[in-house]
Structure formats: C-alpha cells, structure tokens
Design a protein around this nucleic acid. Structure first.
Lengths: 121, 121
DNA sequence: CGGTATCCGTGTTGATACTG
DNA sequence: CAGTATCAACACGGATACCG
C-alpha cells in the first residue's frame, strides 16, 4: 500500500488495513461471518473483482482473513475472519468511536450502504 | 491519501494516520511534547520539507496536531499534539501491541531510529 | 527559519474483458 | 463461480530549488 521507510509494525499494520475497501471488507466479514467471493462482492457494492482479490490476498497474507477453497464444480471459495482478524476488532472499535465523534456520522456516497452494524464497527 | 469510495469515519481516520511518516511524526511529537519545524524535521530524519508540511497540515486539519505560529524574526512555529492527538494513543497502543506480536520487533532501516518509546507507541 | 513551487517517477486503483 | 490479464488514469511521494 506504500513502501515507505521507517516502517514500524504499527505503521505496517495501519498501511495494510487502511486504504480503499479494506476496512469495509473486514466490516462485512465481521458482520456476516463467512462469505463466498460472489456474495462478498455483492455486499461490497462497486468493488471490482481485481481489487477485491487483491485485498483478500493481502488480508490472507497477514493472517487476518481465512480462505476456504472447495474444488467442487463449480468451485466454492469462502472467506472469513481469522482469530487475528477478530482480535483487531477490539482496538478498531475504539478508533471507530473516536472517528465517529470527530467526523460525525457516516456520509453516504453513490449508493454504497455503510453498515452501521451495532455489533461491529 | 487515497480518494476512495465507501469512506466511513474509521476508514477516513485510518487513511489519514497511515502512510509514510505520519505515525512517526505523531510518535516524535508524543515523545517530545512540542517541537519547532526544524527540530521536528531533524528528528524525522530523511523527510523532505514538503512532505513534513503536508503531514502537519493534514494532522492539523483533523485536529490531531496544534500549530503555534510566532511572527517573530526569524519566525518560530512549533507543533504539538492536541488532546485529540493524545486520545489517539490509547487505541493505537493496542494496535501496536497486536502489530508487534504479529510482526515481531522493529526492523531498523537506513539509520532511522525507531523510537520504542515505552510510554508511547 | 519555515516553509512554497515545480517537476518527475512510480505505485496503485479501477474498468473491462476474458478464462479454467 | 472465482477469479486473471491487460491497460489507462491518476494521485501520491519525494528531490531540488527558491522565497518572505
């Protein structure tokens, strides 16, 4: 997401979970538990398959998301948060609270529904 | 840092505080309390004035950093964290802990000293 | 001292079309 | 269904040089 010097672990993590779509994807996964690629794509309205794949691969690489591949025909692949992924929720809640305090409520754009999930984000 | 759709407050905040230098700057300010532009620049070794200004303006805009301008000759401008900025430390600590657990300790690069401040980050 | 102006390189996003 | 391939657009980072 940025190569950047002086990359401490925190900065690295922040670089990874920030940027377009990523948080939104985590949010949707947190809310729904486990979703297949297509469903995920439908929930994250407007994302292109390429970008969704990129984000999922990245999240998988850092152990935040688990990819479950079933080589049936047609193939079924589903994604869910790992334990690490769920651990993230805790501190993110607090950041979310601060962010909401500061910026106020979500501003909807071009039809993308922002979740407002009470139990997560 | 990215224009991005589906920008909820959390995503917005994360987008802003992540990216090169930003966390490092916050960290240095948290450690030192208040610094003049030149001192800050010296502490954040390798940053260009443009980028430092960009980050500071951004952090100021979201109320995380306070800019104190003294029109003396030569002018003196110092920067410090606002209360909001200090509030951020709390949740960031937790993220820092997770990040450190996951990625292990800091890897030093090209002479930039990563702070390891015990009291902050 | 504390910046701004300008410019370039590059990474990353994102559409669209196609495939096993 | 679950992606890859390809390509264009663009913002962003960063270097250098200059200004009040």
């Amino acid at each position: 997401m940025v190569k950047s010097k002086s990359q401490n672990p925190l900065e690295k993590l922040l670089n990874q979970i920030s940027g377009p779509w990523t948080m939104y994807i985590l949010c949707v996964l947190d809310k729904n538990g486990s979703l297949r690629f297509g469903d995920l794509r439908r929930q994250v309205e407007g994302i292109s398959p390429k970008v969704l794949t990129d984000r999922l691969r990245m999240l998988e690489a850092i152990g935040i998301v688990h990819r479950d591949y079933n080589p049936t025909i047609p193939p079924q692949v589903s994604y869910a948060l790992t334990d690490r992924g769920k651990e993230l929720s805790q501190p993110l809640y607090q950041l979310y609270d601060l962010a909401t305090q500061w910026y106020g409520e979500v501003i909807e754009e071009d039809g993308v529904q922002t979740p407002h999930t009470p139990s997560a984000f």
